[in-house]
Amino acid sequence: MPRIPPSVFRQALRTDPLLVPLLPVTRSLSGAQAELRWLRKEVPKPKLPWAIVQRSNYRPLQYILGDQPFLDLSIKCAEGTLIPRWETEEWIARIKPFISNVKIIDACTGTGCVALSFNGTGSNIVGIDIDTSCLSLAKFNQQSNRCDDIVHWAQCDILNWTDDLHHVCKGVNFLVSNPPYIPWEEYTKLDRSVKNFEPQLALVGDLEFYNALVHNLLEPNLNTCDGFVFEVGNVNQIHHVRDLVKKHGWNVGYLMDSAGYHRCVVGWKPDGRFDFKKLCDFVY
């Protein structure tokens, strides 16, 4: 990482001394100014020095402020749960218009942001997570955002096929998931604010999660399920999912995010209710 020039520190000091501790974290003056503005707006004044110290120790801003806007929702964030990413926000906004009146399963729901975003499509939504503290946060978010569609939460481990899981997923029409997708080798090299503060459980994983999603959730429900969208971290994972579902005759494509990375693998039944062809940036 390039060193921040001393001139930037001097400029920060002249503009506002409180910017200086934030500078190594944000690595740009404009970023530090934005974060300081949000901190000033949302943290009560006596707690501001505490918040700045926390932030300068690389604690994620979303954990300090306690929430993150996500589409039209305000999602409460707490330690132990992954912070919603803008990439997720982006692909959900793209996919939402295609969905109406279906049963949706959101596997690895975390804060529940993905599941709750589909509120308003008249759907029956179930969010699944292995962690109970995530589920209670998701429930909180459901209430605070006044989601009136039918949303349920279930505590299941998708890696192991159980009767519970089978029962919950029965009759699913559309499958979404943002599973952990960072391979262990990459995890060790992550930013401090991710590695030291966000749960490893929500980050580290690779092909095994896509295997589980296809084998445990999709394949038992092949006759009802018409489409899926999984977030991915690299193009390998897309290829893996494509190879898994191609044998069922499904169409597969992927989405790119605005930063130019491969972000989602999308699959749909050729004669099903969804036609994601227009949505995809590339179709295999």
Binding site: M1, T26, S28, G31, A34, E35, W38, P60, L61, Q62, L82, I83, R85, W86, E87, T88, N178, P180, Y181, I182, E186, L190, D191, S193, V194, E198, A202, L203, E231, G233, N234, D257, S258, A259, G260, Y261, R263
Partner: peptide, 16 residues
């Protein structure tokens, strides 16, 4: 959008 460091997605929790 601001290109984040690394691979984006779960890799970075940017506020930018």
């Amino acid at each position: 959008v601001m290109r984040s460091r690394g691979k984006g997605g779960q890799h970075v929790n940017t506020t930018d």
